[in-house]
Structures are given as structure tokens and as C-alpha cells.
Computed example of a mutant assay.
Amino acid sequence: MREHVGMLLWALLVGLSFPVVGLVETLPPLLLTALRFAVACAGLWWLARRSPHFWPAWRALPLYAGMGLCLAGFFSAMFWAAHHATALSMATLYVTVPLLAYVMGLLLGVERRAWRMAAVLLLGAGGALLLALAEAVVQGGALQFGRGEAVFFLGCVASALYPVISKWGLASGRLADSAAVRTFWSLAAGGMLIGALGLAVEPVNGLAAMGIKDALLLVYLGLGSSALTFWLMQRATAALTPGAVTAYSYLVPFVSMLLLFVRTPEAIGWVWLPGSALVMLAIALLASGRAGR
């Protein structure tokens, strides 16, 4: 239950981070993400270094590199697709992440074959999709599939693979038991890859526009939205399956819906009810432990 509560907090933090990201969208996104991960690693350093297994063994390096590549792949695909795909299409594709994690987890032997888990994931995916469609009705948007959507889907595959690699590394004894250590090295690897890509395709002088407000927001995103959220995910991965961990991403559009109601109360309507009900039911079944039976 502790891990489920932690993932509820994860969903809340991720949902609240989207408005903050929008406040610094004028800065180079890849370089900004690399700096965000650097801040996260700095915040995790004091906790991770206390572990006797802080320095990774040689056989763990490929796994951390793979996890870093997953992070770099997802964020790079997301930022590129944001200019070539509609928000509705991206939101629709993102609901596939838990299902992808479940399937890949089955292939690597870290996910249990349980029809109830598959049913709960489909239930949550349906609810999240209905929330995305409701937002499109209220704010406008179009559903399409083109090059941008294809690239973002590959990013979704990378995002789903991150907890699968983590779970497999834990099950095989290759990764450290400490969630802080796993979070630190995966973010460090991902940050270096994203930073290298950002240096290649983005103007470095774009960071010169960063002011004190931007720096404070960066620290918040690094510590609250990156270090804490990925630590919560890694902690939950030790006890839950990849499908169960990623299923909490269905709550993110629910949090975004609540934020929309705060900013625009007139947006409240019955159109949000079906998706909200399905998402809450899926999370309740997941937290109860019935999905894994």
C-alpha cells in the first residue's frame, strides 16, 4: 500500500508540473531538460551516496545506459513531436504506455500473466482516452496520425521500457536495491544523452535568456518533478510490476482536468464524468490488489 500511495503522489506531482513547464517553454527544451536532470542528480547525491552500492558494478552499466536512453528517447521524441503533432493525438498515444509496459514485462518475465491486470489497464486506458477527448471538446483539438505521432509513439515505447528494465535489473540482481541509487544513475545517464543531443541541435546561447524566475522554476522541476517523481517510481518498481507502476499515468489527465476547473470553472460539465469514473475505478482496483490475481 505504501508504494500505491507513493504513486498517487507521483501522479499529482507530474500533473502539477505541466503548467510549470509551460512557464519556461521559451528556453531550449532539450538543454533545459538536461539541466533539470542535473539539478535532480544534485538533490539525490546526498541520499544515494549513503548506499554501500552507490558505485555501479560493471554489469549494471549497460542497464543504466539503457534506462538513460529510454529517458532521452522519450523526452526528445516528446519535444520534437510537440511541433509536429496535435496535443490530442499525443495524449491519446500516451495511454498506450501502461499496456506497452505490461506486454514488454511479460516478454522479459517480470510481469505476471493475469487477465484482471490486462482488464484494469484497458479500463484505465479507456478512461484516460475519454478525458483526452473531453479536453478536446472543451479546448479544441484534432486527432490524427502522421510523422509526428509516429515519433511520439516510439517515445512512448521508450517510456514504457524504463520500468521494465529497472524491474528486470532488480530481479536479476544487477541493479542496486536502493531506489535513490537507481534514480541517480538513470537520470545521470539520461541527462548526459539529452544534453549531448541538445548541444548538437539547439543554440546554447538560448540559455542566456534564463532569469532568476526561470532558475527557480528549474530547481523546482529538478527536485520536485524529476528527482522525487523518478525516485517514487523506482521505489514502487521494487514491489509492483511495470504495468501497475505505469498505470498511475492514467491519473495525470485527471489532475490536469482538476487544474483546468480551478483556472476555468465554466469548463465543468458532464463530458468529464465517464473518463473520470473509469480512471478512478481502474486505480481503485489496482490499489486493492485485485488486478494482479
Rank of each mutant, 00 (worst) to 15 (best):
W46T: 15
R147C: 12
L122Q: 03
A48C: 11
G66K: 02
G109S: 06
T96Y: 08
R116Y: 08
A101D: 09
L106P: 00
V138K: 12
P98Q: 05
F54N: 11
L108R: 01
V151S: 03
A114Y: 04
G127H: 01
V110I: 12
V138A: 13
F54T: 15
M117S: 09
C156E: 08
L107N: 10
T92G: 07
V164F: 02
E149L: 05
V137R: 14
R113F: 13
G140S: 14
A72P: 07
R113H: 06
R59S: 11
L131F: 10
V95W: 01
S89R: 03
S89Q: 01
S51D: 15
G126K: 00
A91M: 00
S76C: 11
L121Y: 02
V164S: 03
R116P: 06
L133K: 05
V138Y: 14
A65W: 12
Y94S: 02
L93S: 00
E135Q: 11
M104I: 12
A81L: 08
A160N: 01
G105A: 13
W46N: 14
F74S: 05
G109E: 06
L99G: 06
T96E: 13
A101H: 02
H84A: 13
A48E: 09
R112A: 10
H83R: 10
G66Q: 03
P62T: 09
A77D: 00
R112T: 12
R116E: 13
P163W: 01
M78D: 01
M117F: 13
A125W: 00
Y102G: 03
A85C: 01
V164A: 05
V110Q: 06
L143D: 04
L63F: 15
L61P: 10
L100S: 05
L93W: 00
A158G: 07
A158D: 03
A82I: 09
L93A: 00
L100R: 07
L122T: 06
A82Q: 02
G148W: 01
L106E: 05
A125S: 08
L99V: 07
I165R: 00
S76I: 15
C156A: 14
L71W: 13
A134V: 10
G124R: 05
L129A: 00
A48V: 14
A119I: 08
E149C: 06
M90K: 03
